[in-house]
Amino acid sequence: PWQGRSIASSKLRMLEFSAFLEQPQDPETFNKHLFVHIAQSNPTFSDPYLEAVDIRQIYDKFPEKKGGMKELFEKGPPNAFFLVKFWADLSANLQDDSSFFYGVSSQYESSENMIITSSTKVCSFGKQVVEKVETEYARFENGRYVFRIHRSPLCEYMINFIHKLKHLPEKYMMNSVLENFTILQVVTNRDTLETLLCIAYVFEVSTSEHGAQHHIYRLVKD
């Protein structure tokens, strides 16, 4: 049931995704602030399918040259492509941050035992500015293979970016900056180079008192 209703291709399903800040309170406790978060969900056949977005509407927001989104989509499989619109929660107090930990955690599952590679490209005006590549091995749990990228440290570029964004006095200014800030995550089977998931992330600042929010779309080409 999750195919078409969550971030899942026929080979890999994203279970959870979060980018967070941990702030120590005292030696034994810390506060965890979620900038963005996709919580675990268990869609059923009665849930609606994700809305679709024509991938051509966002091509220019991501790398367009060799190995870019267009080429990736042409290679397929088409059911592996998603767009996530995040409303990021920037309400955290970022002062005195020498002991703060900025991290990203994500989890995936598959019916296949494989080694996955996750490439995360931060883009400004559609051009890659920094890339992180991570390799994860499967763990067999409860009848399926689980992949965990646990507490991966946020890069210096992203930490600086969040700080600069926070210093802008108005939300519309932050959203104006975020209009040209995107992230492209491509998860591949390390050995076959098959695309397992391709997720395009775009952002606004949350105005909600309930923290980070998101919408997920299927990327299609009609």
Binding site: Q57, D60, K85, W87, V202, Q213, H215, Y217
Partner: peptide
């Protein structure tokens, strides 16, 4: 930077793209 990018607001995107969910 690109000079002639079409603003996101002018692109063909679902209405929900501009509606922040209000979930607790």
């Amino acid at each position: 930077s690109k000079q002639e990018q079409v603003p996101m607001r002018k692109r063909q995107l679902p209405a929900s793209f501009w509606e922040e969910p209000r979930l607790a």
